[in-house]
């Protein structure tokens, strides 16, 4: 079970959340440009999209994109 509760990313909330969880997670930054990398469903390549970009893979024009695994550290009990 994840140790941290999910926190809705907001501009003000994000800053304080980032400060609190910094030591544990290694610091997730709230990026105002929203450039995210996704994984293409057909060819498996990395796709970078910024805000308001067209949802398509540049290599193979596939339109199914998957989000990458979170960069946050997750803790589990080995039970």
């Amino acid at each position: 079970m994840p140790r941290e509760e999910y926190q809705v990313p907001t501009t003000s909330g994000g800053a304080s959340a980032g400060a609190m969880t910094r030591g544990a997670t290694g610091g997730e930054r709230h990026d105002s440009r929203a450039v995210m990398t996704y994984i293409c469903g057909d060819c498996g390549g990395n796709v970078t999209l910024s805000k308001d970009a067209l949802v398509a893979c540049p290599h193979c024009a596939g339109r199914v994109l998957y989000k990458e695994r979170t960069k946050r550290m997750v803790q589990f009990e080995a039970r």
Binding site: M1, G26, R69, M73, V74, Q75, F76, E77, A78, R79
Partner: peptide, 26 residues
């Protein structure tokens, strides 16, 4: 002595986090 806490930075394998943690504990 046995593994009790597992801190996963990244796991892109097909084994789910909790299953992996369980296996490591054993």
């Amino acid at each position: 002595l046995a593994i009790e806490d597992v801190f996963i930075e990244n796991n892109t394998s097909v084994i789910q986090d909790e299953v992996l943690a369980h296996r490591l504990g054993l």
